[in-house]
Write a protein that binds this DNA or RNA. Structure first.
Lengths: 197, 197
DNA sequence: TTTAGACTAATATCGTTTTTTAGTCTAAAA
DNA sequence: TTTTAGACTAAAAAACGATATTAGTCTAAA
């Protein structure tokens, strides 16, 4: 029941996979770096792929967790939307392996890995969905089809996510994201505006 | 001055590159399929890369042209935004090589090719920009920073573009796109709504 | 339980040979 | 003049076999 062993293995694996990728990282190296026997890794995870998938799974969970926390800090649905967007982009940075996953096009990598990626997307949409639902219930948002709207916003945010991998300047992302949330709030045709940049 | 030769070469090249990619397509094949001598291709284009880049350039131009036309058909700025989104996704389908370009992650391909891709993005943003500008001038859109808003919308649409490569069902895209434009118009906080799905 | 380490079978790497292909050239045909 | 077929070269890619790594197993000791 030495949980710390598994912990140590996964932390090391996360770093190594993040730096060198799935192929170029060997279990012998991970074992050496994590100061455990290779057999121990097999005891816990059974295969190299499952170590990798577990790393991805934890990254996804961590992101969802952190986003949920940030959203939970806010009270007003509007603030929650903004918190969501900010948190997502801030914490995505730490999910190196998930990030590399769609930098590499996903193709060659395990199908399971892609499903974790798309599951993350759906969980994000779920969070957006519940924010929107709350907003509608409170009478501050007006939407015909909440799940559809959530999904659309989710897709829109993906555009930033993927471009951001190339773009380096964090400020640019901030600006654009602010403008997008602004539009999402008030639309193009409303006179109401939040504080301008 | 036999323009038709160049035309034939480019049409054939577009098909072959689209089907087999840059690497797996040989100039000998293109020459054979286009019923011209290989030397003729070199007369016109000078190198294989330049043939490929010319194909990309034409695809980009065609898209911009078709989008501009579709947008031009509409009078109201709101309709123009919708026309833009629809046209973009409809005609992107035909730009096979540009599409493959970011399916393959762009990495391995020529740097010039990427610049054509990002140039296309900027031209699209320019179109959106002028639509928004017109809307603001006519008093139907309200925006602090038009270019920023245009860029944000452009990024948002990229999210669909990239996801759509994986998703097969065209209808889904339609639905989501409709919802997104709806949000972009009226925002989350406005009671005004267009006809619902 | 964990460990070090030996072990195997599959996979990847590497260096070499062979083939393909981008790009050039020429002389004839259009 | 321009285009063509085809020969040609140099460079890159594919094929291939030999070598080395590495995923995964097993064992006996700690």
């Amino acid at each position: 029941m030495k949980e710390e062993k598994a912990e140590s293995i996964l932390n090391t694996a996360k770093k190594m996979f993040g730096r060198y990728g799935l192929q170029k990282t060997t279990l012998d190296e991970i074992a050496r770096m994590a100061r455990v026997a290779k057999a121990t890794i097999y005891n816990y995870f059974g295969s190299k792929d499952r170590v990798y998938l577990e790393v991805l799974r934890r990254e996804a969970n961590e992101i969802v967790e952190k986003i949920s926390f940030s959203v939970g800090q806010e009270v007003l649905p509007g603030d929650k939307v903004i918190a969501f967007a900010r948190a997502k982009f801030q914490y995505m940075r730490q999910a190196i392996n998930i990030l590399n996953l769609d930098r590499d096009g996903i193709e060659k990598v395990l199908p399971k890995a892609e499903s974790i990626r798309s599951e993350l997307f759906e969980r994000e949409v779920d969070i957006i969905c519940s924010i929107l639902e709350e907003g509608v219930k409170k009478g501050v948002f007006y939407l015909n089809n909440v799940p559809l709207a959530a999904s659309a916003i989710g897709h829109a945010l993906r555009g930033f996510e993927l471009n951001w991998l190339v773009q380096e300047n964090e400020e640019q992302i901030e600006y654009h994201l602010d403008e997008l949330t602004n539009i999402i709030f008030y639309g193009l045709v409303s006179e109401k505006r939040s504080a301008n940049a």
